[in-house]
């Protein structure tokens, strides 16, 4: 649309109004939770950015969010919906754990790399069947990827209860991965590991892939006008399939990094809904990799901040999810007025 990039006074005003709306509704929700909004915001900010431990922890929690969001974004570039990030992430986590507690190549770095590759492959496999059904049978990928989440959850629950259950543990969980697989925390006392750099690295790769690579270019054209893409000789179905596979791999990698960098095993309720938070982030970032990092930081800060809020007040930490979703709805509402309607 002409003039989308021009900054007009009206757009600026609307954007300010948008921020104001979001902040006031946030304040209202905190107030409902039983705390004065100003104090609430203070606890959230202090809890997420207050000192460098909390800041690092906020950064660390961005890792699964960034990758889960990217898992939605990459298929969206070609016009596909990947709602299955949650299941793909679980499969990926299990893949990493499986390698981590059963194999050892002797060299730490090799171990880690192999485990991560396996986690990406597991995630990819879980995205493959909905994508295949979509391009072969036009089966709605929203339903299939979503059903995949529930199936994966039960599948993992079975695996950690039965064949791969840690025999020494009273709970249903896998054994710990071997220490040579662990990606250690970098600083004493704070949860921050190199996984953060892996996630940021992946985002940069995706950014460059989209802007600089022939295939990334094909993704973009396919999403923008599939008929044109087809007439230009781009194989639209293959491109869509590939985007979905990459999406699945990214979600799987998120799971792998969580296991190697934080939990060191897969247990019951491994993911508190990373896949869906990733979806929200991607919606807010309009599928842009760099924006994903920014929004993921905000969401992560909200999550770590909310834990702090719960610590000092009666407001439960679950508030973060509400604040995040409210923000998405407001942005969606204002988008029509700020960017203008665009069909398709």
């Amino acid at each position: 649309m002409i003039g989308t990039r021009t900054l007009s006074f009206r757009k600026l005003l609307l954007s300010l109004l948008l921020v104001l709306c979001i902040l006031s509704v946030w304040a209202l929700i905190i107030w409902f939770g039983g705390e004065s909004p100003f104090k609430g915001f203070r606890y959230i900010i202090e809890g997420s950015l207050g000192n460098h431990y909390q800041f690092l922890s906020t950064l660390n929690k961005m890792v699964p969010l960034i990758l889960a969001a990217a898992a939605v974004a990459v298929p969206a570039w070609t016009g596909m919906w990947n709602i299955g990030g949650e299941g793909q992430l679980l499969l990926g986590a299990f893949g990493a754990a499986l390698v981590g507690f059963s194999i050892d190549f002797g060299v730490g770095l090799v171990n880690i790399v192999v485990a991560l590759i396996v986690s990406a492959a597991f995630g990819m496999a879980w995205a493959a069947w909905p994508a295949f059904f979509k391009i072969k049978l036009r089966m709605d990928e929203v339903v299939t990827t979503l059903m995949g989440n529930y199936i994966a959850a039960q599948l993992i629950a079975y695996l950690i209860n039965n064949p791969f259950r840690d025999p020494r543990s009273p709970l249903a969980q896998t054994p710990y991965i071997k220490s040579s697989f662990v990606i250690p925390y970098l600083f004493e006392g704070s949860q921050f590991s190199a996984t953060f750099f892996v996630a940021i690295g992946m985002v940069l790769v995706l950014f460059i892939f989209r802007k600089r690579f022939i295939t990334g270019y094909e993704f973009d054209i396919t999403g923008s006008n599939p008929v044109f893409a087809g007439l230009s000789g781009i194989r639209v179905k293959k491109t869509k399939l590939l985007s979905m596979l990459i999406g699945g791999a990214l979600a799987g990698l998120a799971g792998g990094l969580l296991v190697l960098g934080m939990t060191q095993r897969v247990m019951q309720s491994f993911s508190p809904g990373y896949g869906f938070t990733g979806l929200l982030i991607c919606l807010l970032a309009f599928n842009d990799p760099l924006l994903i990092v920014g929004i993921a930081f905000l969401f992560s800060a909200l999550q770590t901040g909310s834990v702090n809020l719960q610590l000092f007040t009666s407001v439960p930490a679950e508030i973060s999810g509400v604040l995040q979703a409210v923000m998405v709805l407001f942005v969606a509402a204002f988008k029509t007025f700020i960017v203008g309607r665009r069909e398709g």
């Binding site: 649309m1 690579f213 022939i214 270019y217 054209i221 006008n225 007439l231 000789g233 781009i234 665009r342």
Partner: peptide, 29 residues
Amino acid sequence: GKGLAPDRSIVENCMAGHHKFGKFGKWLI
């Protein structure tokens, strides 16, 4: 509807199809 991607830039529209012939590199543009 079929000949161009109206929301994309002139460069991106010019490249379409030609990119399959390796004119702008095999992998990296």
